[in-house]
């Protein structure tokens, strides 16, 4: 079942197109935004709402990097492994993150805070190496500042926890 909020947001996206099925990627992104990832159940609900087959929708969802069909941690780290970042030391940054978090590419930390994924060129090659954490872009990375950046996300969560009680 989709929530009222989800259907409301999806309806706004449908208005952009002559056919509601065209909003399917937007719909998947909305559901993912609310639930963290697109579960089978969520996929089914979106497919029903847009009157399309689940297999077709899954074929579209799985085509994209930013649609997660499996659970991910609170913070998804997407490290650029494309050419300019590779030249500027992507391997070292990756090793540092792996070491700090104790996870490899494609894995999530046991406390569910971080998932580490590779990504293609982030379009910021003059500031390579680069990565994104959630919607935030971090550039000009080195082995020191990347640790600071990770720390700041760990601290962010602590602040949130105290506010939530």
């Amino acid at each position: 079942m989709l929530s009222t909020e989800e259907t409301h947001e999806i309806d706004l996206e449908i208005k952009k197109f002559p056919y509601k099925q065209s909003a399917c990627l937007e719909a998947l992104a909305i559901v993912q935004h609310h639930r963290g990832y697109v579960s089978n159940e969520a996929l089914k609900a979106v497919a029903q709402y847009l009157e399309m087959s689940e297999t077709e929708l899954d074929g579209i969802g799985t085509f994209y990097n930013l649609i997660y069909r499996k659970p991910v941690g609170e913070n998804v780290i997407r490290i650029c492994d494309s050419v300019s970042c590779w030249i500027l030391g992507y391997e070292k940054i990756k090793a540092k993150i792996k070491n700090e978090l104790g996870i490899d590419l494609g894995q999530t930390t046991p406390d569910n805070r971080f998932t580490l994924l590779p990504t293609q060129c982030l379009g910021t090659c003059d500031h390579a190496p680069a990565l994104m954490i959630g919607d935030d872009l971090h550039r000009d990375l080195d082995e020191n500042n990347v640790v600071q950046i990770l720390k700041s996300y760990q601290e962010k969560r602590v602040v949130k926890d105290t506010i939530d009680g």
Binding site: S82, C121, T124
Partner: peptide
């Protein structure tokens, strides 16, 4: 879409 590796002009 600007996803060609090495390209950062449209950004």
């Amino acid at each position: 879409d600007e996803m060609e590796p090495g390209t950062f002009k449209d950004r």
